[in-house]
């Protein structure tokens, strides 16, 4: 796969205008994740109402892959229940660790399937995962309260 094919229109669209970006109140947990190799940083908040993820808000800097992936994640998890979000995290993680061999489920991952190609570039997998890992971490913290 050529690198150019990695940069699908969907990814660049999300990079250009990140959905749900910005830090908002209220929130139950806030986490900060960084990738010290390339300097990507995300600060992310979650707010739960019962079992529902009522908001995910974030401030982040980084490459197109990390920014777009965080934006797609927020689209997918907000308004759904926690179990659904964590399930998507697992699916996305499996896709990323699949070295490009795993056929993603478009119905569930929606725009997230645009990142299937990233799995073929080990150096970029971390970029695609940073927002998702922050989300999972924040959920764990919010539920611990």
């Amino acid at each position: 796969m050529k690198v150019e094919e990695l940069y699908q229109e969907i990814i660049l669209d999300h990079y250009r205008s990140k959905h749900h970006s910005g830090l908002r109140e209220p929130y139950q947990a806030e986490v900060q994740h960084v990738n010290p190799t390339c300097g990507d940083e995300v600060r992310l908040r979650v707010h739960l109402v019962g079992d529902t993820v009522s908001d995910v808000s974030y401030e982040s800097v980084g490459c197109s892959i990390s920014q777009a992936s965080t934006s797609v994640m927020a689209d997918l998890v907000i308004g759904h229940d926690v179990a659904h979000g964590l399930g998507l995290y697992e699916e996305f993680l499996t896709m990323m660790q699949g070295k490009g061999q795993i056929e993603p489920n478009e119905e569930r991952l929606e725009d997230g399937i645009a990142f299937a190609g990233v799995a073929k570039f080990p150096a970029r997998v971390k970029c695609a995962l940073i927002g998702w890992s922050a989300f999972r971490d924040a959920i764990i913290q919010a539920r611990a309260q």
Binding site: V3, E4, Y7, C38, G39, D40, G62, C63, I65
Partner: peptide, 27 residues
């Protein structure tokens, strides 16, 4: 629109050019 260094270096790498992207240990 800024083009992020990680995206730059990845594209350069695919053309055989090795550069460094990031804060180079000088944040």
């Amino acid at each position: 629109q800024p083009i992020h260094p990680h995206d730059v270096s990845h594209l350069l790498d695919s053309r055989g050019i090795a550069v460094r992207a990031g804060h180079h240990c000088a944040r």
